[in-house]
Simulated scan of single mutants.
Amino acid sequence: MNRNDALAGALVADAAAMGLHWLYDQEQISTVAASGDLLFRQPDSAVYQGKKGYFAHAARRAGQLSHYGESARIVGQLASEDAYQADTHRQRFLEAFGPCGHYVGYADRPTKTLVARMINEGAEISEPSGMDDNQMPAVCVVAGIFSAAQSADTVRTAAQVISTNEEVVASAAAVYQCLEQVLQGKSLADALSASAEAMTDTVGALMRDALAIEGYQPLETASRFGLACYVEHSMPVVWHLLKHATDFESAVRDNIRCGGDSCGRSMALGAIAGLVFGVPDSLVARMADARVPITERFV
């Protein structure tokens, strides 16, 4: 079992989902699947026309990262180089998502808010720098910090660079706890249960509800808990998918089949499934972003 597979898993799962990200119509996704594999689809606005969804990735090409994956890559690169520092995290974030940044594509509200604060406040920016937002972007930090064998406290610090919402920070901590327990030899089922039990908020209760569902019902579970970007939607769906996962690729594909914020869910699902099952070289080979190989795992 290799810590680096958590980061690899998050990045690969994100890129695999990006082409159908934020398509909320499960029936349409099934129709798309009939024309070829759901993984690593080229973003196509025609797929979204007349359907419930938001076409965000016109500037991206198949195999590239979404803004979620780019955020995870930034932290992974930083954590692999040296001890994590929040100010360096923000600087790398600005270099990616700020004016003339190297990431070309959609930016969500937490990303725009952090960039604006950095531009307006500069070196005087206060800690923590994130906004009170209960969506998934801050969970992006977990895979890279875990892969670099850094601490749970570092996860909290890094998450709060992007979001100060306590349910989001707790969700990031739950992903980290699950990864650590799997690495220490716990079964995936036990690690999922223990990490959900450790959460005392509403999101934790929903995660426990998802684990209690009889049988594997990915699409129905996603529809029940919600397909949007909020942690109370994403985390229960991820825990249900992982409870029944048997390999990395099928877990990633089922995440896409669920629809909605598949890239956001990839930050948790891809990291944990990557650590548990390993990331197939055949999927790594489909990554198009030349900056993804940030560790020896990808060389």
Score class of each variant (00 low, 15 high):
277 F>K: 14
229 C>G: 02
289 D>A: 10
20 L>Q: 00
237 V>Y: 03
51 K>E: 00
103 Y>D: 05
166 E>A: 05
21 H>F: 05
22 W>C: 02
164 T>L: 08
266 S>D: 07
237 V>L: 06
285 A>I: 11
131 M>I: 12
233 H>A: 01
160 Q>P: 03
107 A>Q: 15
288 A>D: 10
58 A>S: 05
61 R>N: 15
171 S>D: 07
156 R>D: 15
270 G>I: 13
216 Y>K: 09
201 D>A: 07
189 A>W: 03
276 V>K: 15
5 D>C: 12
187 S>W: 14
95 E>K: 12
241 L>P: 00
173 A>Q: 15
168 V>S: 07
202 T>C: 12
225 F>D: 00
48 Y>L: 02
234 S>M: 01
83 A>Q: 15
76 G>D: 01
215 G>K: 10
35 S>R: 14
90 R>Q: 13
161 V>M: 09
177 Q>C: 12
298 F>N: 08
225 F>A: 00
146 F>Q: 04
147 S>C: 05
221 T>F: 01
19 G>D: 07
75 V>N: 03
22 W>F: 08
64 Q>H: 15
131 M>Y: 09
145 I>M: 09
107 A>I: 15
260 G>N: 04
182 V>F: 10
169 V>W: 06
206 L>C: 10
143 A>H: 06
37 D>F: 06
120 N>M: 11
112 K>R: 14
81 E>V: 15
258 C>Y: 00
4 N>A: 12
12 V>N: 06
135 Q>N: 13
237 V>R: 03
66 S>R: 05
53 G>L: 00
98 G>P: 09
35 S>D: 12
64 Q>A: 11
204 G>T: 05
233 H>D: 02
61 R>T: 14
85 Q>I: 06
102 H>A: 08
51 K>N: 02
233 H>V: 00
136 M>R: 03
17 A>T: 03
268 A>I: 04
78 L>S: 06
102 H>V: 11
132 D>G: 02
110 P>G: 01
183 L>I: 10
248 F>A: 11
146 F>T: 01
72 A>P: 05
8 A>G: 13
23 L>K: 01
50 G>E: 03
35 S>G: 08
121 E>P: 01
295 T>H: 07
283 L>E: 11
34 A>V: 04
1 M>S: 13
168 V>A: 07
209 D>P: 04
83 A>L: 15
179 L>A: 11
